[in-house]
Amino acid sequence: MKETDVKVLQEPTLSLADQFYLPQVLKGLGTTMKHMFKVVALGQDRVIQYPEERREDLPVGEGGILRQTYRGVHRLNRDEEGRVKCVACFMCATACPARCIHIEGAESPWADREKYPIKFDIDELRCIYCGMCEEACPVDAIELTSIYDIVGLTRQEMIFDKEKLLRIYDQTVKEEPM
């Protein structure tokens, strides 16, 4: 360090009130009390009492979820006849940065497409919920829903298979149409 960089400063002298720090404490408490009044008396708080009150039930401006954009658990969409929409093109599995989608394709029994998935597993513990599978899908078969709380007792339980993903579609299709 150069000599010119060194700057010696005199410590500012404190007044008697400053030396006790009490006025500063009271001033800070004043602001805190003002906020407390706003919360307790006027009800202007941002707290959601979670298990009783859930974000899905709140309007978007007040802490609710915007369902169309939320990136939660995946679902596999069905077409009009209730069949799985996926054509087993492996686009989502290729686009996945976490490599958590495992698909096994097979000859399709239906006339409108060549292939369909007989196995479609997503490891929800490996997934990073980036939404790239949804973006990559050419037939809008895979989508991210607004379900954010998934639990399981074993790791095996958290690998969602095709049936489970289709069930999530049935569960969420009312609130989130395709």
Binding site: V60, G63, I65, L66, Q68, T69, Y70, R71, I128, Y129, C130, G131, M132, E135, L144
Partner: peptide, 26 residues
């Protein structure tokens, strides 16, 4: 909350993407 409306995530956003942004503003 604003981020969540933009891209659906709150912390790990992955919103700005090569060539632009992934989704348009709501």
């Amino acid at each position: 909350d604003l981020f969540e409306q933009m891209c659906g995530a709150r912390l790990t956003l992955s919103y700005i993407n090569i060539g632009g942004v992934t989704w348009d503003l709501p």
